[in-house]
Design a binder for these strands. Structure first.
Lengths: 221, 221
DNA sequence: ACCTGAACACCGTTCAAGT
DNA sequence: ACCTGAACACCGTTCAAGT
């Protein structure tokens, strides 16, 4: 498939999967997902475009490998058993996922657009499900809680990184929001505008995470 | 900008914003987001590609108009005040958003990739924040709850539509998941595999939504 | 075995020119 | 005013041929 054979025959390879994923993440950080093209990546690696297809079947395959790489270490955030109660350990895992996505420009977009099934991604899921099962949650509850926490975290971080994109003044569409709210008749949006346009994304994230964990507490037993 | 002037001078226009968005949604349903190109859309409308740029500044602008269109009607799902308690009304809004996204192929991807600020989108937000404020939640809580519910719903539906993509047998990466879990050592994923690979997405959604609403109940007062 | 060179079949966007 | 025709500067992917 996309992995060359083991013994080094002929000239040593100039690139490999690991180096290519690293270069792709660097390019992502510098220029963003829209500018991450196979040609530009090949340039950065000093090879021709076609060479990339010996290591990745498609660009989607490369993006999946990037997502898997980004998730590295997140599984360890739970800490050893006994280090905090189940809700604190679960919260650490969710925060670690958000942090991992924030660590790369458009990280959430890459993650949301792929379906990595490598050890980093599976390890994270196993960790979170494990914390809940060991806390006494049923298998169904633990599995569904994993999805709820993951989907919220990815959804949140997608918005967080989108809001921070344009780069210069304030939030991007906070302007459009203010304008529309001022003109139209959205009384509740008008009343909550300061919070809605706040850029304290950590506070937004912690609020949603707390809802999910409080909800889990209510569902338990 | 992208809106032609009002009085009909010269020949009547062959296309307009509304017709174009409708054709784009049809094309989306038939072929998916990856196949939705400006050229194919122009073909479907019987014009040349360049003509589209008289109505939409960029493809992103078109996608935003599509997202806004998809959100139509979702704001009304709360029903009249008094029709159910706050949590039931909020749940109806969240379900209406999921349903609106599911109504179009790749609907969640379109919605997640844009930032519509039209009346449908703002009306939905105003509705949900309104339900919570009228139930006695503070402005900050109501605004942040809007984000939590919306991000969870979009994140969930993104996964739901991604899982249903390939189309033929079972879930797409359920196979990859089973395989990896069988080979590797993920005891908690192995134990919960039946639920993790379940395609009852409505149940997954309802569970996460319940966590958020139970969490809100716990936070109130 | 690994990479190059070159092609194939496309893209989004712009803009002079026609009607 | 609205649309066409044609171009510009790219894309992802494939594959014979070189080394």
């Amino acid at each position: 498939m996309s992995t060359p054979s083991s013994p080094t025959r002929g000239r040593p390879a100039r690139i490999d999967r690991t180096r290519t994923v690293e270069a792709a993440l660097d390019l992502l950080d510098e220029s963003g997902l829209d500018a991450l093209t196979m040609r530009r990546l090949a340039d950065a690696l000093g090879v021709q475009v076609g060479a990339l297809y010996r290591y990745f079947a498609t660009k989607q395959d490369l993006l999946t490998a990037m997502a898997e790489r980004m998730a590295g270490g997140a599984a360890d955030a739970a800490g050893p058993p006994g280090d905090g109660d189940w809700s604190e350990r679960a919260a650490r895992l969710a925060r670690a996922l958000r942090t991992a996505l924030l660590a790369h420009r458009d990280g959430a977009r890459v993650f949301a657009g792929t379906h990595a099934t490598g050890p980093n991604t599976l390890g994270f899921s196993d960790s979170l499900v494990g914390v809940l099962r060991e806390a006494g949650f049923g298998d169904g509850e633990a599995a569904r809680a994993l999805y709820a926490v993951t989907h919220f975290t990815v959804g949140h971080t997608l918005e967080e990184q989108a809001a921070l994109r344009p780069g210069d003044g304030g939030t991007p569409e906070a302007g459009a929001l203010r304008e529309a709210v001022a003109a139209g008749t959205y009384p509740h949006l008008a009343a909550t505008l300061p919070v809605l346009t706040s850029t304290d994304f950590a506070a937004h994230f912690e609020f949603g995470l707390r809802l999910l964990l409080d909800g889990l507490r209510a569902v338990r037993g």
